[in-house]
């Protein structure tokens, strides 16, 4: 992916909006915060459709693609320090995994849970096998791959943070544009079909959005924990409201703040892992919402969603 000069100026502008901190910290906060907000927003619809765990399979499935991209770059470019190309590899294999999940789930007697586990096991296994080979090549750059598995924003470059921010912004914008359609799909797919909405296309868009957020998040939280950013903020936001626009906005807020907090804490001392800290911040918000949240105490009867999908089906 090419990042033009105009985007680079924009990155400097964006980074300078943040409070006066060290440049590296600002870059890390920009990446982690925008990613968290986008993941929370996009994840809301995933959780509503009860497909939260597909994010886990997609995250794990990026590994073989990342490894192959690494191998190709080592062979042809001599260096594998190009994050966009690594992420492009991850995108391809996550996309393939998404297709595999839907193909497997269409088989007789196999449901989506099994399809997710099968694809996850096979893809991640392949990734680990490839990684085992890469580690023996001794090119000295495999350490860069660890940042994608564990997540580490401390060494994030400004251009890469910028890319994460733009990907996040893109995912949020597409979700806002298709808000009504995605909401109706989540609440009542049958109704959506009757209204003539392109269901397959919307499902495809949702998968693409999930893949984009997942891949953008590899560098910040790592491929094992990325599902957390798509699931925990919506689940926490759900304790505070029954209205979808509120839940989605709150979820984006929780995700964004968790990203900022986690990245900020991990910048305080060398060796503090970013991904786990971001996830633990979000988990703390979830725990507080579970205890103090306002919606679950008065258990409501499930409501039929309005045509505009503004009612959240409880449970």
């Amino acid at each position: 992916m090419m990042i033009g000069p105009s985007l680079e100026t924009a990155s400097v502008t964006l980074a300078s909006l943040l409070p006066v901190l060290e440049f590296n910290t600002r870059v890390a906060l920009l990446g982690a915060g925008s990613l968290g907000a986008a993941a929370g927003f996009v994840g809301t619809f995933l959780v509503l459709r009860r497909r939260a765990l597909i994010a886990d399979t997609l995250g794990h499935s990026t590994l073989p693609g990342v490894c192959i991209a690494f191998l190709l770059m080592t062979l042809f470019l001599g260096s594998a320090r190009n994050l966009p190309l690594l992420l492009a590899g991850g995108t391809l294999s996550a996309g393939l995994a998404a297709w595999a999940v839907s193909a497997v789930a269409r088989l007789p007697k196999i449901r989506e849970d099994a399809a997710l586990a099968i694809v996850l096991g096979a893809f991640f296994g392949l990734g680990i096998a490839l990684l085992g080979v890469l580690q023996q090549l001794e090119t000295g750059q495999v350490a860069g791959l660890d940042a994608l598995i564990d997540g580490n924003v401390a060494s994030l470059r400004a251009g890469d943070a910028e890319m994460i921010a733009w990907l996040s912004l893109g995912a949020v914008l597409v979700t806002i544009l298709l808000f009504k359609e995605l909401a109706l799909l989540a609440f009542d797919a049958e109704q959506a079909r009757l209204q003539g909405l392109p269901i397959r296309f919307l499902e495809f868009v949702q998968l693409v959005l999930t893949v984009v957020v997942t891949v953008a998040g590899l560098r910040a939280v790592g491929l094992i924990l990325i599902i957390a950013l798509l699931v925990i903020p919506p689940a926490a936001a759900r304790f505070w409201s029954n209205r979808l626009p509120v839940v989605a906005a709150l979820s984006a807020l929780i995700g964004g703040l968790s990203g900022l907090m986690g990245a900020w804490i991990s910048a305080q001392r060398a060796g503090l892992p970013t991904g786990p800290l971001i996830v633990l911040t979000a988990s703390a918000v979830f725990a507080l919402s579970l205890i103090f949240g306002t919606t679950r105490r008065r258990r409501r009867v499930e409501r039929v969603p309005g045509v505009d999908g503004s009612e959240v089906v409880s449970g």
């Binding site: 959780v47 009860r50 497909r51 939260a52 765990l53 994010a55 886990d56 564990d150 094992i224 924990l225 599902i227 957390a228 798509l230 699931v231 925990i232 919506p234 689940a235 759900r238 304790f239 060796g271 503090l272 892992p273 991904g275 786990p276 800290l277 996830v279 633990l280 988990s283 979830f286 579970l290 679950r296 258990r299 409880s314 449970g315």
Partner: peptide, 26 residues
């Protein structure tokens, strides 16, 4: 009890525990 949807409940619990484990490990 908390009416978190099943798949989301799995996702919330295991990632939180894993994150805690990774942090403790470090």
């Amino acid at each position: 009890f908390a009416k978190v949807e099943g798949n989301a409940a799995i996702g919330v619990v295991f990632t939180a525990m894993l994150a805690l484990g990774l942090l403790l490990l470090r």
